[in-house]
Simulated assay, not measured.
Amino acid sequence: MVMIMWLGLLIPFFGTTLGSAIVYFIKNKKNELLSRCFSGIASGVMVAASIWSLLIPAMEQEKNILIIVLGIFLGALLLLFLDCIVPHMHPGTNDEEGKESHFKKTTKLVFAVTLHNIPEGMAVGIVLAQAIRTGSIYAALALSIGIAIQNFPEGAILSLPLKSNGFSKHKAFLIGSLSGIVEPIFGFFTILFSNWILQCLPFCLSFAAGAMLFVVIEELVPEMAQGKHSNLPTISFLFGFCVMMVLDVILG
């Protein structure tokens, strides 16, 4: 079970690493449509994961729907708070958010992706904590694989702009990969508090779902809608959504 736990924690990080490696295969010219499609895939996976891996299990265990609603809103409020205080900049824009700072643009790009990864790490940690107690290993691995799939485009979304801004391929790859390390860290610390988490598991599941949905609505959806109209980002969203749904149904 310990090996499964570490595997579940590290699979999403491997997804980020593979996505960051795209800098070695794409020319220097920035492809805005490709980045938007990547955001669409990531959005679809996160929405599906929020529903099938987090909210549905939460509602199956908690009959008081107000607990679920409270968890969703508090999870979103946590990310809103972090969004307001952490200086960051989203890929594809020059709009800075959070507190004013003298950090470089590239640092703010990394902070933006790091904010994405916090709720994902929490979600994986919570589901793994549940798996340790109940033995539902495949459901936990389904979420880890799904998050890894959505981390693939996120790694690319970060590493490609870094390369466009003058970073070498190797440095862009390294920074893009390391941006995903926050997920296993947050997942691990979530598991450390599993005794408390399991006592209020439905609330924690909905809390993680709310945080993930905030990221989708506030950051990823606007990114996929930027620029000239195209249906490809929408199709990418549906693709990511269906992949995560199938994964959860088959493995869950």
Rank of each mutant, 00 (worst) to 15 (best):
M1D: 10
M1P: 05
V2K: 03
L7P: 03
G8R: 00
L10N: 05
P12F: 09
P12T: 12
T16N: 13
G19K: 01
G19H: 01
G19S: 11
A21S: 15
I22E: 03
Y24H: 10
F25M: 15
K30Y: 06
E32F: 12
L33R: 12
L33E: 14
L34P: 06
S35L: 14
S39P: 09
G40H: 05
I41E: 06
A42E: 04
S43V: 07
G44Q: 05
V45A: 12
V47Y: 05
A48S: 15
S50Q: 00
S50L: 01
S50Y: 00
W52H: 09
L54F: 04
L54N: 02
L55G: 05
I56F: 13
I56D: 10
A58P: 07
K63W: 07
L70H: 05
G71R: 01
I72L: 13
I72V: 10
L74I: 11
F81V: 15
C84M: 15
P87F: 13
G92E: 08
G92T: 01
T93E: 13
D95K: 14
G98Q: 10
E100L: 11
K104P: 01
K104D: 10
K104Q: 11
T106D: 08
L109G: 03
V110A: 10
N117T: 04
I118G: 05
M122W: 06
A123N: 08
T134C: 05
I137L: 13
Y138T: 05
Y138L: 12
A140G: 09
L143G: 03
S144I: 11
I145E: 15
G146A: 13
F152W: 07
F152T: 11
F152Y: 07
A156D: 03
I157F: 06
L158I: 08
L158E: 11
S159C: 11
L162G: 05
L162F: 10
L162D: 06
S164C: 04
F167N: 13
K169P: 02
K169N: 15
A172M: 08
I175N: 02
I175R: 01
G176M: 05
G176E: 08
G176Q: 03
G180L: 10
I181Y: 03
E183Q: 09
E183D: 12
P184W: 03
F186A: 07
G187A: 11
F188Y: 15
T190D: 04
I191T: 07
L192V: 13
L192R: 12
F193A: 12
S194D: 03
N195H: 12
W196D: 14
I197Y: 01
L198M: 08
C204R: 00
F207V: 00
A208F: 03
G210K: 00
A211W: 00
L213I: 11
L213Y: 01
V216M: 05
E218Q: 12
L220Y: 07
V221E: 04
P222N: 09
P222Y: 13
P222E: 14
Q226A: 13
H229S: 14
S230H: 09
T234C: 08
I235E: 11
L238G: 09
F239N: 09
C242L: 15
M244V: 12
M244H: 03
V246G: 07
D248R: 06
I250E: 15
G252N: 10
